[in-house]
Design a protein around this nucleic acid. Sequence first.
DNA 1: CGTACCTTTGATCTTAATCAATGCCAGTGG
DNA 2: CCACTGGCATTGATTAAGATCAAAGGTACG
Lengths: 237, 237
Amino acid sequence: MTASTQQRTRHFCDTCAIRNRAICADLENQEIDLLNTIGRRRTLAPGEQLLWEGDEAVLVANVIDGVLKLSTQTSDGREQILGLTYPSDFLGRPFGETTPYGVEALTEAQVCVFERRDFDRFAREHPRLEHRLLERTLAELDRTRRWMLLLGRMNAEQKLAAFLLEMVDRLGVNSATDNGAALTLPLSRQQIADVLGLTIETVSRQFTRMKNEGLIDLPSRREVVILDRGALEDRAA
Amino acid sequence: MTASTQQRTRHFCDTCAIRNRAICADLENQEIDLLNTIGRRRTLAPGEQLLWEGDEAVLVANVIDGVLKLSTQTSDGREQILGLTYPSDFLGRPFGETTPYGVEALTEAQVCVFERRDFDRFAREHPRLEHRLLERTLAELDRTRRWMLLLGRMNAEQKLAAFLLEMVDRLGVNSATDNGAALTLPLSRQQIADVLGLTIETVSRQFTRMKNEGLIDLPSRREVVILDRGALEDRAA
DNA sequence: CGTACCTTTGATCTTAATCAATGCCAGTGG
DNA sequence: CCACTGGCATTGATTAAGATCAAAGGTACG
């Protein structure tokens, strides 16, 4: 909304926090200018939905700031979160007819959105961009497959430990990879359960157990302090 | 091995069964000739391994014939199958340092292999190929995410029903999408368990139950006849 | 034939789901 | 300022699904 006035500003991307990490990183200034003309910024409030599962795939986007979830539902309405996206990640289904999952902002988020058709055309004309997108998609596929191991073969404790470690890494918490790192979870207990394929009660019990065992501290519902990363890594097996 | 003599045959790809479906489909004859010089065919026996998890990523391949499994292991040695590949699928990790999963032939299989570095270079110089690879990778990511829902939220019956339906579709069984379709499973009970995140006993019990309920018939260990596809679809929910 | 492996079947146990309260805040309005 | 409300989260009791342990059947192959 605030972005609409800037839509054609020449140096729109110059101030972009993810300019050098997103799929647009390798583009020449001239190409960036062109990309500017088809993209626009959009701010999302927590809980706001960007894409709906099964809809025609009209939009794709780069995540500039915030965390969003990709999710799908079972026929009886339970949810499975398929992935989380963080700044510099790419979102949506280029070269596809329908959106394969819903996308919802978990925190306040800023995205750089494109009409899918515009983006598809631009990508086909700019192999450097398409290459970056390919690299990203391959990496995402690897990550997703590793997550399958978690869902298929790990117990509740291993799942939660792995989740917390992934959170620490992805949210880039300070505390120099060491103990004492404090993170603010962008997810509710229910959403964590939906990521891990568990119920909310099981997640809650595991949190309490880890706290009692001194692995973590829970100053508030949304905050976690990592007290013993090594032990957590052992639990994640 | 038998292929080595043909390595530089000009029309190597012309007789390729997947020439029009694999990532090489859009290439010009001239480009195909070039691709020929860096690729070679290889035949794999059932159980033979092509890539090892964690190894340096040296090879990528197109599947020409047969079924292969991609798998990873937990620290305590249990296996999780991450996916199955069928003719025209692409295999391996281009643009990556290490192979993220093991690859093993389930049936006798024929693949068209490339040194990863050769392939990477060729791909970067041929955007059409890279585009096909991107489309394939995006589709594979969608499929993998759908599988996550299965692993995270479905019970044993739903998992096996979905597995059988996927098998019918992917193996392209005759019987015109209808009942009576007979398929030969390329997987043992244990391997099916490893795909679905179950134990062999649970898989066996579900097979027996479906047979008793008249959904399927089991003429032999590796054969399944779909007697009531509709009911199976209901179970897969 | 006999052996070895895979599969099936049965009995029991464990884990996480389900069912059911209760507790804890944050925000609202009296 | 405090009591009320409603939405999460925690905790407890019970149940159910699938894992595990154990044994016996089949089938394939030498």
